[in-house]
Design a protein around this nucleic acid. Structure first.
Ligand SMILES: [Zn+2]
Ligand SMILES: [Zn+2]
Length: 280
DNA sequence: TGCCTCGGACCTTCAATTCA
DNA sequence: GAATTGAAGGTCCGAGGCAG
């Protein structure tokens, strides 16, 4: 995130070679999907957020109360630009119509160029995996949108087989994400919509117990009450249950049941709250 | 060994510009 | 006014470092 003080120091972040558009590498990558607005905690931690509030990560860390949208900076206006490329005889930077290629999705589905070209927001919205609709009734929540604008959030289509029995992600479940939006394997799409929402109460990584099964009662129900520290802060850590006296959730960092040093400077950073970046 | 940090790749948004 | 461009501003992946 550009919030890193160091990264913003005046250097444009667009210096990387433009790889926009379908690069059509043999290994087709799905676009990484981003939330519109990460919560402050995830933002500071530079970790994946989702559209629900509290977000999955905050729920995992027991930070529901602190899960609020981060403030977005208003875009500057009045900035002059250089002349644009001519459109006729054109070579659009990204919509390269002369090189329109079919996009092949893992699994063999081919999207015709026309379709590809017609999709400005290539990937339809996919909600966070595993949120129980009953708990997150608000999810997915259509963004307010502007007057006269239809919300573009809901997916009209999502061409991903819902892995009813998807194998566990290769490593640490991609930790906090749905495979990060990349499809390492054709069967590893973790879409939440389109397909009838299956009874998949929780993302495996917030299972209250390693042996807990997806069919088990959603741990969030606990979280909603008071036991918020049952979940190890890190998905791969669920085996370690809270060693923190529940009586004093603040003894350690509120969301970290594993150990208190979370409160220590620096560590308080990305760990959960993100927070104080190292000076310099 | 596993968590944390953070550089930078990647994505989204939207004002500026161009065209019909 | 619609379409397009392209940069600002954002998200978050993943390598590497460090602490336990
Ligand atoms: Zn979040
Ligand atoms: Zn949050």
């Amino acid at each position: 995130m550009t919030v890193h003080p160091i990264t913003i120091s005046g250097v444009p972040m667009h210096m990387y070679p433009c790889s926009r558009g379908p690069t059509n590498t043999p290994t087709t990558r799905t676009k990484r999907r981003q939330v519109k607005n990460a919560c402050t905690n995830c933002q500071k931690a530079c970790k994946k957020c989702d559209d629900a509030r509290p977000c999955l990560r905050c729920v995992t860390y027991g930070l529901q109360d602190e899960c609020v949208d981060s403030q977005r900076k208003e875009r500057q206006k009045g900035i002059k630009r250089g002349p644009y490329k001519k459109r006729d005889g054109r070579q659009p930077a990204s919509g390269n119509t002369e090189h329109q290629l079919e996009v092949t999705i893992d699994g063999g589905m081919v999207i015709p160029p026309a379709v590809v070209a017609g999709v400005s927001q290539p990937m339809s919205y996919v909600g966070p995996v595993g949120y129980p609709p009953t708990v997150y009734g608000q999810y997915p929540v259509a963004p307010p949108g502007k007057p006269g604008e239809a919300p573009i959030y809901y997916p009209q289509i999502y061409f991903a087989p819902f892995p009813m029995h998807a194998p566990p992600p290769p490593h640490g479940i991609a930790q906090e994400a749905e495979g990060a939006g990349y499809a390492p394997h054709p069967t590893q799409y973790y879409s939440a919509f389109l397909a009838p929402y299956p009874a998949q109460p929780y993302p495996s990584y917030i299972m209250p117990h390693p042996q807990a099964r997806p069919e088990a009662p959603p741990p969030l129900q606990h979280a909603q009450h008071h036991v918020t520290h049952r979940y190890a802060p890190y998905p791969q850590m669920y085996a370690r249950h809270s060693a923190v006296p529940m009586g004093d959730p603040m003894g350690a960092h509120p969301m970290d049941g594993r150990r208190d040093p979370r409160a220590d400077y620096g560590r308080a950073g990305e760990g959960i709250l993100g927070g104080v970046p190292r000076s310099g």
